[in-house]
Design a protein around this nucleic acid. Structure first.
Length: 453
RNA sequence: GUGGAUGUAGUUCAGUUGGUAGAGCACCAGAUUGUGGUUCUGGGCGUCGUGGGUUCAAGCCCCAUCAUCCACCCCA
């Protein structure tokens, strides 16, 4: 809702309650869903031996200029000049920060370096479905891994993560390409200069979305020879690893075949090849990728979109005058991922809170008993709240419902008078009367036992 | 940056060819002064996004503006 759209700065105008354009207020229901996703991300990363890191929200714009790509810098970055005349930006992606941190520290660290983070990032974009100005992104990266095995591990981790939520190869696929193969084809087979190659990349990006006629027209505009045009069109029609190998064989490009052929075999060896498909149109927008690149696609017909992108980058440390240390990584956005999960019904209902126990009292005499009991029960790692003020019994129950309590402990008038406490399981309706000798430790143990069973 | 749609109660929306507004959900109270989710009853003056115009009369028509959503561009 847009409750206030007048904000044309008259002194009478009230402040808008809406969050800044393209950002979200993370109310508890949304935050619970996000925490659910983050928890799995962290656990999977740690299963693979990745360690958490984090970096600053602000970086100097120069850091992004070096490798991120023109559009990102010129149009999509939040930047300003600070009080010390430094030109800084809110991070639009994490990889440059990561590279900077690795460049500082890699010499003293055991290789490979395995790190993950879930930073919030901002890009100045026009918000729409699955794309906001601020989002959180699960980043996983490995530096200094031997060729291909780093790529393999990162892909396996991504597969494990998605399948852990219950997704199958019916729900998603990983489309993969190798920039070395693409470069080999463009430079050595088509003999193109870097300017034409850059334009071809753009055409590749669009090739799936435009008609054949438009595609042919776009290719025609490059003024390549007929042989080059045909080869390029043949390349775009490749649909599998095997077809790619045929293409490379036929055109005598054995060097770039060796790598990708071996990689395809490795995918089979660890049995994740059914999730992964070769796709000649995957090249990725960011300039720093140099080898294997991939995107995870939602297979749902209404959501044909990449929810995750990544690849290997060999030279990211060069801008810091460090010797090359190859890296591989991917980013998975919380907005797109949540949509993927809800669309495939893999996201539990987080609309209501949950609470193990509500301890409620009916009069001032019950107050201290409720507070003391809560203290004891929390020591057993049970989530417990009290109603904090004397409340009528019916209200206690309706409050228990509101906060999602599984159990209610009632310390009412009758309880105080007759020295007992009522414990009720709100789902099964089962009710217990326990002796409540108010200073007796054993009674709280009994309550704990009931709740944990 | 380009194109399309939509702005009415806390929220989701209805509102007939123009006659100054209604429903579901939610919320509060009660039926029910020791047992919640169900049920029933009662409870709403909202600058109808904002500004201007046409008209006897505008939620409805026209213009502008702002906001939101969607599709491009690009990306997570």
């Amino acid at each position: 809702m847009n409750s206030n759209s007048t904000s044309t700065s008259t002194s009478t105008s009230t402040l808008s309650k809406q969050p800044y354009k393209g950002t979200r207020d993370l109310f508890p229901p949304l935050k619970r869903a996000q925490e659910f996703m983050f928890t799995h991300m962290k656990e999977v990363a740690q299963l693979f031996g990745y360690e958490p890191y984090d970096g600053p929200l602000l970086e100097e714009v120069e850091l992004y200029k070096a490798k991120s790509g023109e559009e990102l810098i010129n149009e999509q970055i939040y930047s300003f000049t600070d009080r010390g005349d430094r030109f800084v930006a809110i991070r639009p992606e994490m990889t440059p920060t990561l590279a900077r941190m690795v460049a500082q520290s890699h010499k003293e660290m055991a290789k490979p370096i395995r790190w993950y983070a879930i930073p919030n990032l901002m890009r100045y974009e026009k918000p729409q479905k699955g794309r906001l100005r601020e989002h959180w992104q699960f980043n996983v990266d490995i530096f200094g891994a031997p060729a291909l095995l780093g790529e393999l591990e990162i892909l396996e981790l991504a597969v494990v993560l998605l399948t852990r939520f219950g997704a199958t190869s019916d729900d998603f696929e990983i489309l993969l390409n190798d920039r070395q193969v693409v470069d080999d084809i463009f430079k050595n087979l088509l003999n193109l200069n870097s300017e034409t190659i850059h334009k071809l990349y753009k055409i590749i990006d669009k090739s799936k979305k435009v008609s054949k006629e438009t595609l042919n027209h776009m290719i025609g505009e490059l003024n390549m020879g007929e042989r080059e045009n045909n080869l390029f069109i043949n390349y775009l029609q490749i649909k599998s690893f095997d077809e790619l190998f045929d293409f490379l064989d036929k055109n005598n490009l054995p060097t770039s075949k060796t790598n990708i052929h071996k990689f395809a075999q490795l995918l089979k060896d660890i049995n994740i090849n059914n999730f992964i498909k070769y796709d000649p149109t995957i090249v990725r927008g960011l300039d720093y990728y140099t080898g294997i690149v991939f995107e995870i696609y939602d297979k749902h017909p209404e959501n044909r979109r990449a929810l995750c992108g990544g690849g290997s980058y060999a030279n990211l440390l060069q801008i810091f005058n460090e010797s090359p240390l190859p890296g591989v990584g991917f980013g998975l956005g919380d907005v797109t991922f949540k949509e993927f999960l809800s669309l495939h019904k893999l996201l539990p209902d987080f609309s209501k809170p949950t609470m193990d126990l509500l301890i409620s009292f009916q009069n001032a005499d019950g107050e201290k008993h409720a507070l003391q009991l809560a203290q004891k029960i929390r020591k057993a790692n049970i989530k417990v709240i009290t109603n904090l003020q004397a409340t009528k019994v019916a209200k206690c129950f309706s409050y228990a419902e509101r906060v999602g309590a599984h159990f209610i402990a009632l310390i009412g008038d009758d309880e105080i008078k007759n020295n007992y406490i009522t414990i009720k399981n709100l789902q099964t309706q089962q009710q217990h009367k326990l002796d409540f000798l108010f200073l007796n430790e054993n009674e709280s143990d009994k309550i704990i036992e009931i709740i944990k069973s």
